Amino acid sequence: MMRLVRFSLLLFTLVFASLTPVHANENHPGIVTDLVVRSGNDWTGSPLPPYLMSAPEVAVMRFTIPPNTALPIHKHPAINAAYVIDGELTVFQEGGMQRNFKKGDVVIEMVEKWHHGINQGSVPVELVVFYATTKDLPLAIKKPNP
Rank of each mutant, 00 (worst) to 15 (best):
G45C: 06
G45K: 04
S46R: 08
S46L: 09
S46D: 15
S46P: 03
P47M: 04
P47V: 02
P47N: 03
L48T: 01
P49K: 08
P49N: 05
P50Q: 14
P50D: 13
P50N: 12
Y51V: 14
Y51C: 07
Y51I: 07
Y51H: 05
Y51R: 15
L52A: 12
L52K: 14
M53K: 15
M53C: 12
M53G: 05
A55V: 15
A55S: 06
A55K: 13
P56L: 10
P56T: 04
E57Q: 15
E57F: 10
V58W: 07
A59R: 15
A59I: 09
A59M: 13
V60I: 12
V60M: 07
V60A: 13
R62T: 12
R62I: 13
F63E: 15
F63T: 12
F63Y: 11
T64Y: 08
T64W: 00
I65C: 07
I65D: 00
I65M: 07
P66F: 04
N68E: 14
N68C: 15
N68M: 14
T69M: 09
A70H: 07
A70M: 06
L71V: 13
L71I: 09
L71H: 10
L71S: 14
P72I: 07
P72F: 07
P72Y: 14
P72G: 12
P72Q: 09
I73A: 10
I73N: 10
H74T: 02
H74I: 11
H74C: 09
H74K: 08
K75Q: 15
K75Y: 05
K75W: 07
K75N: 13
H76I: 06
P77C: 11
P77M: 08
P77F: 06
P77A: 04
A78D: 08
I79S: 03
I79R: 11
N80R: 09
N80W: 01
N80P: 01
N80Y: 03
N80V: 02
N80G: 09
A81T: 01
A82C: 02
A82M: 02
A82W: 00
A82Q: 02
A82S: 12
A82V: 02
Y83F: 13
Y83V: 04
Y83C: 08
V84W: 00
I85F: 00
I85L: 14
D86F: 02
D86R: 09
G87W: 00
E88W: 03
E88K: 12
E88V: 06
T90A: 00
T90F: 01
V91I: 14
V91H: 00
V91A: 01
V91E: 05
V91K: 00
F92P: 07
F92W: 15
F92L: 09
F92A: 13
Q93M: 04
Q93T: 10
Q93H: 14
E94G: 03
E94S: 06
G95N: 06
G96S: 08
G96R: 06
G96M: 09
M97R: 15
M97W: 03
M97D: 13
M97K: 13
M97V: 14
M97C: 11
Q98W: 03
Q98E: 15
R99C: 02
R99T: 00
R99E: 01
N100K: 13
N100S: 09
N100R: 11
F101H: 00
F101D: 00
